[in-house]
Design a protein around this nucleic acid. Structure first.
Length: 115
DNA sequence: CGATTGACGTACG
DNA sequence: TCGTACGCCAATC
């Protein structure tokens, strides 16, 4: 069985960065997309997350939100509140499906990994 | 096979 | 400054 999911696919790159997000931190689709050089293909990052649950190891997609810190993909975690629960469990405060202090909790791959 | 949608973001008016 | 339009690429209908 051949698996081309070896950093070859754009999705795998997204998974790699998402997995690098430290606990208690969050990042945005655009940040990952831009880090990969496809800032305009931010949508693809979201699509990649679509398979994040079936990837191994599992990808902490709950730490990935849109650029405003809104849990846009909360509905894809099985339950519309699962994402919020996971974030709060990591110490991240979520209010109205929105991450509090998102700017402070924001984990920029380009800045952290490029440092 | 063609059109539409989708976990977003940037550009333009 | 706020609102609207477009782009991106893949999957689904």
């Amino acid at each position: 069985m051949k698996k081309e999911s070896n950093l070859d696919s754009f999705f795998e790159q997204v998974y790699a960065v998402a997995r690098l997000v430290p606990r208690g931190r969050v990042t945005s689709y655009g940040a990952i997309a831009k880090y990969l050089g496809t800032a305009r293909s931010s949508r693809m990052v979201g699509w990649a997350m679509n398979g994040a649950h079936q990837v191994k190891p599992k990808v902490p997609a709950h730490r990935v939100v849109n650029r405003v810190g809104v849990l846009t993909g909360k509905h894809h975690f099985g339950s519309p509140t699962k994402m919020k629960e996971l974030l709060e469990k990591e110490g991240i405060k979520v209010k109205n499906d929105q991450v509090k202090d998102f700017k402070e909790l924001f984990w920029d791959p380009m800045k952290e990994l490029s440092l």
